[in-house]
Design a protein around this nucleic acid. Sequence first.
DNA 1: GTTTGATCATTA
DNA 2: TAATGATCAAAC
Length: 224
Amino acid sequence: MRKPNPPATINELMQRVNDIAGITLGELAAQYQFKTPEHLLREKGWPGQLLEYVLGASAGSKPVPDFELLGIELKSLPIGYNGKPLETTYVSVVPLTNLTGITWINSSVKKKLNHVLWLPVLAEKELQPTERTIGTGFLWQPTKDQEALLKRDWEEQIELIALGDIEKISGHLGEVLQIRPKAANNKATTNAIGPNGKIIKTLPRGFYLKTHFTHSILSQEFMS
DNA sequence: GTTTGATCATTA
DNA sequence: TAATGATCAAAC
């Protein structure tokens, strides 16, 4: 099969999502002649890249929603046999400089999470990457309560960064939204605001949704 | 180096 | 065993 075009409507997108529910990543990759990792899962981004391709998401690394026409972000969500998320969910890069004028409303986190297509994938560790089974995808927008939680965590941690206290931030902070390293390795560096307002070098960081938050989203969708 | 896609693996 | 810190690959 050829590379799918971007879906024109939400209905079209959701039809494609429903069409792939229940099959494995290996079967899907074969159908579309998409590359499959031959041995170990060293290509950590493979599940997401395959799903993007099949659903017609914008290719490449662009700072725009996966489905630009629809304003929807695709997030695959690895879950275990118990239906709970196995990993935190990466959201976006954490800004470490030029924070003047930045607010929750215009933040990358709010924009990214404004409208998300969650695609659960049964990804229990004993399963080979190709044996992971695609679940039922669904659209989600934060409720007022959920957004309030995200906003509170975001503001608390952005304030620390603005004050030059990036090195005081660890994955322990944040109720639902945490900040953790996001880099090739722990030697990578980027600019950040340091003590006294001086620019320092530090490890690039990313925002991640904690698993209990994504689990609550799943519960809200499937157990209501 | 940065941003996209995430998972790995050591620690607590 | 869950969570935090570290890491892998591709495109640019």
